[in-house]
Design a protein around this nucleic acid. Sequence first.
DNA 1: CTGCATCCCTTTCGATACTG
DNA 2: CAGTATCGAAAGGGATGCAG
Lengths: 144, 144
Amino acid sequence: MDTLLKPAHTDLPASPRLDAGPDQRPDPNHADCRGVASVLSRVGDKWSVFVIMMLSDGPKRFNELKRMINGISQRMLTLTLRGLERDGLVTRTIFPTIPPRVDYELTDLGRGLQQPVKALGEWAIEHLSQIEAARTRFDARNEG
Amino acid sequence: MDTLLKPAHTDLPASPRLDAGPDQRPDPNHADCRGVASVLSRVGDKWSVFVIMMLSDGPKRFNELKRMINGISQRMLTLTLRGLERDGLVTRTIFPTIPPRVDYELTDLGRGLQQPVKALGEWAIEHLSQIEAARTRFDARNEG
DNA sequence: CTGCATCCCTTTCGATACTG
DNA sequence: CAGTATCGAAAGGGATGCAG
């Protein structure tokens, strides 16, 4: 029973320690590297971010999300939603109707996460041109 | 010459459109989904974030970074640094000495990115316990 | 409609060995 | 020291078919 819905973001693969070794100075940066990496992995997951975005304006149904993202397979959507549910970022509400209906909604935690993600997104939008310019420059230099 | 240092984050794999289909209403969220995903992918990359963190307090040398992160292979470090350099987030300065020395340093753009990343990291630290609790609860429910 | 299982291809990543 | 080349293992992820 552990074939499909496990390879998502089960946990942290092999969280390396940034402050490894005996030379452990009080660096304000390495705080909870493991935990940070955990959340960052989720944020870095394209689908998770998209789902969180889509859930901004209220609860959505499974196929509703699938249609909105339109490029995601139902496998990945299921996987993503399970991961988000597991982390307590979204709730899954089943309506025992026929046909069955399942609503997904952001929790308070999920809505909280949405803010820093949004900030990041806005930074991205604002500096995207610079990044793309840098990429073009780099690529031209590297293979031109 | 395209065997090792390409599979990093070359570009965007298959950026799906969130606003696909004819039903395209003016949602303030989908802004530049492709661009946002691009940056988010980088942020979601564990190694990229770690390198950016390590570069917070000034320039570092290759093996210096490798030692600090300690769990990253030199292949991934090279890959990560190339990606960051390509995006204009870090600079690579070569000192033609013997032995050779290469310094990596955050650009203004990189330092700018650091802020939202840090905000996200702080959110992560602050809510990590909730997330872990949710995970434990979910796992217990799912296999207990 | 929602969602799990299987097959299978692609990408990613670590280990290792080799240059300047 | 700072990379680069290659290989093999593993994970990611799509397509399809089936079940409640």
